[in-house]
Amino acid sequence: MNLFWQILIDGFIISSIYAVGVVGFSLVFGTAGVLNLSHGALLVVSAIFFWFFVSNFHIPLVLGMAGGIIISVIVSYLLFIIVINPIDKSKKIPQDEKEVFVLTATLLWSMIIEEILIYFFSSNPVVAPPFVKGVLKIFNMNITCNEILLSLSSIVILILLWLFINKTRTGKILLAASMSHDGLAISGIDLKKVYITLWGVYGILTGVSGALLASFLGASPSSAGPLTGLAFSVVVLGGLGNITGSIIAAFLIGYIQTMTAYLISPAYTPIPAYVILILILMFKPKGLFGRF
């Protein structure tokens, strides 16, 4: 019985953090049609800078987190300006090969970030200090207050994102862009401004979740690849570009991983997500709740 509660609560904490970690990825695909293979690298960037600011300058955690988010937004814009936009506008690259070029270029981008991070910060994993101390006892289990705070923050961020997309004008424009670029242009909205908003929001979302990750599991430059793989599995399972679907899928995969860790062995934790990804791509490429 104890094991049941353990899986239920641990699974919820992990799943909620996964959900925040992947919505940005889903948003960028839905709105700009970009499959960003450097997603994991961006998460690691904000996680490592958050840790670096806090442990080097001894500033309050919230300030360090803000620093990590700013770096993440900068890297997100750099990706757009240096890689995504030029490929989109390029006349040399054949139209039908652009998707492949974006995949290859973002994978390269991921590798560049990873190597530069290893050069400056080494490949050792870093863990940021907890936001709050203390341990709660629930159903005979010890759960740190920090984990509870991280999980609750994740839920709050998801609610804020939902409100942003559905209730503000800017958010509604992003939502409209995910449905039809032409329709948006006809309504007199500049697509360039949409992209500027999009990559900014993406940077913030990924920056925040990178910080959560640093405080929860820790991160190292070499986790970039596996994190991208995880984000892919979740987003493909939920249906590419469907944010609600991604969140539900994050909980499915989070719980499956937790059960694998507790019932089989922690060594096997990464496997189910990959197997699910392969099965979904093979048999139901639109995912559980796909629109595309």
């Binding site: 499959l35 793989g229 096997y268 496997i271 990959y274 093979m282 490429p285």
Partner: peptide
């Protein structure tokens, strides 16, 4: 089999995952 069923980028993802899986297997 996936190459016959899937278009470019989606097939690309499967192959990428195959590398991740092989890496995990070697570690396990």
């Amino acid at each position: 089999a996936p190459a016959l069923r899937l278009r470019g980028p989606y097939f690309g993802l499967i192959t990428l995952v195959s590398v991740f899986l092989l890496g995990e297997m070697i570690t396990i």
